[in-house]
Design a binder for these strands. Sequence first.
DNA 1: GCAAATTAATGATTTATTCAAG
DNA 2: CTTGAATAAATCATTAATTTGC
Lengths: 213, 213
Amino acid sequence: MGSMKVHQFARGFWEHEPSLTLGCKRLRPLAPKLANSETSVTASFDLKSFIRPESGPRKLGSSDDKRDSAQVETHPGGTRWNPTQEQIGILEMLYRGGMRTPNAQQIEQITAQLGKYGKIEGKNVFYWFQNHKARERQKQKRNSLGLSPCSRTPAPITTINLDSMGEVEREEDSPYKRKCRSWGFECLDDNNRLCREEGDRTLELFPLHPEGR
Amino acid sequence: MGSMKVHQFARGFWEHEPSLTLGCKRLRPLAPKLANSETSVTASFDLKSFIRPESGPRKLGSSDDKRDSAQVETHPGGTRWNPTQEQIGILEMLYRGGMRTPNAQQIEQITAQLGKYGKIEGKNVFYWFQNHKARERQKQKRNSLGLSPCSRTPAPITTINLDSMGEVEREEDSPYKRKCRSWGFECLDDNNRLCREEGDRTLELFPLHPEGR
DNA sequence: GCAAATTAATGATTTATTCAAG
DNA sequence: CTTGAATAAATCATTAATTTGC
C-alpha cells in the first residue's frame, strides 16, 4: 500500500488556478470575501512557519523501507490495546475519582503510569474514558428505569492523584465543556495508518487565546 | 453553561424523537443562501478589506513572544481557521472528486498545499471534510423533501489527484468504513491547551490490522 | 456612509452509534 | 458479550455578511 511516491506537491501546481471553475456554488456565506488577493501567499510566513519544528520530510515510506529498528512498539498481536488488570484498575480509580475527559497532559501522565503495566498509548486512555463514560451512562439510564429514579450517584469523591499528577478536577457529567480537545501530530505507519507519538514534545504552537472570552 | 447540562439530560429522555429536535431545537432559520453565485473578486472595499492580511506567522518562538505588536488581525491568539477562497476551492474540488475522509497522509499533503494560501493545520482539513460531508448530507435530506425524491445526484466524477497524490478513491457516502482515523501526537501549550505539532515525527506505533475487514 | 445589532455560515468539540476483535 | 476503535450526529462558539439606526 505504501506505493505513494509522494513527493510533496509540486509547489505551484494550482497556484495559478485558485478559484478555478468551482467558484459558483457554495461560495462564502454571503458576500465576497476577497481580502486575500495576493498578499497572503507572498507574505513571507511561508517558510517561517515551516522551519519551526524540525522540518525534515521524514521517511514517508518511500518504498517499503523496513528501518523499524527496535520498533517493537507495535504489540505483537498488532491489534487493539489489551488492558491489563492494573491498568483497568487505575483507570477506574481515576474515573471514580471524577475524571471524565482528561486533557492532554493528564493523558500523557496516565499513559506513562499505565505504561509500566503494559503497552499502552494515549489514545487508548482517551478512548477508554470516552467509552467508559458513555457506557456507564447507558447502564445508568437502563437502571434508572428499574430502580429508584433519583439515585443518580454522581460519583464518589476521592481526589486521587496519580503520583505526580495534580488532582483530578472533577468534571461531573458536564456535557459540553468546550475543553479544546485536540489534535496531535499525526503520522502514519507502514500500513498507511495513522498513529500517534506519545513522548514529550516541544509542545507549542497554537498561540491560543488568553482564555478570557 | 450550566443550562446545557439540563439540555443534555433531557436528551436522554426524549431520545426516541430524533426528528423533534430538528424541528424545534436549534433550528436555524437560515436559508440556503447561495444567491450570490459568483461575484467575482472585485476590489470594492479597497482599504477596509485590506486590514486583514494576516496569515499569521505562527512561529511562537517560545521566547517571550509577547511582542504582539501588529496585533491587528493576525490571529495570534489562535482564533479559528479562516479559510481563503483558494483553500475552499481546492477543498471543494477534492470533495467533488469524491474525497470524504482523507487519511493522515492525504491530510498532510492537502494541508501542505493549502498552506500556500494561508495558515492552516491538518485538523482544519479534517474538520472541513467532516463538516462539509455532514452538511451536504443535511442539505440533501432537506431538499429531498421538497424536490423530486430521486434526484440524488450522487456526485460528479472527477478523479482529481492532488498532484502526486494517487487518486481520490471515491468514497461515496459510505457510512462507516472503518478507516482508522487516528490520533496524532498531542501536546499542550502554556494554557494547558492541546496543540498540534506539525513537523515530522517518528511515526510508528499502531500495528494495525491488515485492512482486510 | 459608518458602527452597533442581527443573522447566516461554518469551524471546532462533544456525545451518540456503530463496527468488529477477542 | 464485552469493549476498543472509529464515524456520524448534535451542538457549541466564533466569525463574516447583512441590517438597521443615526
